[in-house]
Simulated assay, not measured.
Amino acid sequence: MRPPAPEHFTSRLRSPAVAARVGTWLGIAFGLCFLTGVYSHVAQLPDPWIALPTRPSWFYRVTQGLHVTAGVASVPLLLVKLWSVYPHLFTRPPRARRDLLLHGLERASIGVLVAAAVFQLVTGIANSAQWYPWAFSFRATHYAIGWVAIGALVIHIAVKLPTIQQALTSDIDDAALDRPAMSASGGLSRRGLVRTTWVAAGLAVLATAGSTVPALRRVSVLGVRSGDGPQGVPVNKSARAAGVLESAVSPDFRLVVAHGDLSVSLTSADLAEMPQTTADLPIACVEGWSASATWTGVRVRALLDLVGAPVGVPVTVTSLQEHGPYRATILPGNFAADDLTLLALRLDGEPLDIDHGFPCRLIAPNRPGVLQTKWVTRLEVSA
Rank of each mutant, 00 (worst) to 15 (best):
G124R: 01
R14C: 11
L13T: 09
Q44I: 11
L79I: 15
D338V: 09
A144G: 12
K374I: 10
A272R: 12
W375Q: 04
H259T: 07
P53Y: 08
S265F: 01
T196P: 00
P76Q: 06
R21L: 05
A19I: 05
S185Y: 04
A284S: 14
V315W: 01
I125Q: 06
L26S: 06
D252I: 06
R191H: 13
D171M: 04
G232H: 04
A129T: 08
L262T: 14
A269K: 09
G31W: 03
Q44S: 12
L206M: 12
S247V: 12
G260R: 06
G229V: 10
Y143H: 15
W131N: 07
C33I: 11
V205A: 11
P325I: 09
A344K: 04
F30V: 14
A248N: 05
H88K: 09
H8Q: 15
P251Q: 14
F90T: 05
A184T: 13
G65R: 02
A293M: 06
D252R: 13
P48E: 08
V317T: 09
V42Y: 01
V256F: 02
S226G: 08
R218D: 14
R301I: 05
T208D: 04
E322C: 00
V194S: 02
G369W: 10
M274C: 07
V219D: 00
A117F: 00
A116E: 03
G65F: 00
G23F: 07
R61Q: 13
A96M: 03
L13P: 03
G227R: 05
L113K: 00
T377E: 15
A184N: 05
A167D: 00
V62K: 00
I125R: 00
L168C: 07
R346K: 09
V122K: 05
L303T: 09
D47Q: 10
F59K: 00
V22Q: 08
F136Q: 08
E7A: 15
V249L: 12
V62M: 08
W198N: 06
H103Y: 15
Y60S: 06
Q231H: 05
V221W: 12
T318L: 09
V205K: 04
I164M: 13
S170I: 07
G192N: 01
P76H: 02
V376L: 07
L342V: 08
A328D: 12
V213T: 01
S185M: 10
V85P: 02
W295T: 10
H323V: 12
G308L: 11
E350V: 07
E322N: 11
L101P: 02
A272W: 02
H8V: 08
V219K: 00
L303Y: 09
W289M: 06
A144E: 07
